Amino acid sequence: MHSVPLPDQYLQFIEKFNAGEYYECHDLLEEIWMEDKSDKFLQGLLQLSVGLYHREYGNIKGARWMFGNARKYLSRYQPVHWGIDVSEVIAYIATCEAALPESDTISYAEAKNEAFPLYRLQIIHR
Rank of each mutant, 00 (worst) to 15 (best):
A109H: 10
M34E: 14
D27Q: 05
A91V: 15
M1D: 06
L100P: 05
Y10I: 03
F13G: 01
K112S: 10
G58P: 05
E56P: 07
Q43N: 04
G51H: 05
I32E: 13
W65S: 07
I32W: 10
L11R: 09
L118V: 15
Y108R: 09
F41P: 03
C96P: 12
V86D: 03
S103C: 14
I84G: 09
R126P: 15
F116H: 12
I90V: 11
E97R: 14
E35V: 06
F41G: 03
P7N: 02
Y73H: 06
Y73P: 01
L28R: 04
V4I: 11
H26Y: 07
A111M: 00
P5F: 09
Y108S: 07
R71A: 07
Y108D: 13
K40I: 00
L52P: 10
P101S: 08
E30S: 00
D39Y: 11
H54A: 04
V4Q: 11
E97N: 13
E56K: 09
T95K: 15
A94D: 15
L118S: 15
N59K: 09
Y77W: 06
I90R: 02
E88W: 05
L118H: 15
F13S: 01
G51R: 02
C25F: 14
N113W: 08
E97P: 13
A115P: 14
E102W: 12
G51L: 04
I60M: 06
M66D: 04
F17L: 05
Y73L: 04
M34Y: 10
Q78T: 11
L121R: 00
Q122W: 14
V86S: 03
L28Y: 14
P5Y: 10
A115N: 14
Y23F: 14
P79N: 01
E97M: 15
G58R: 01
S75A: 04
Q12N: 11
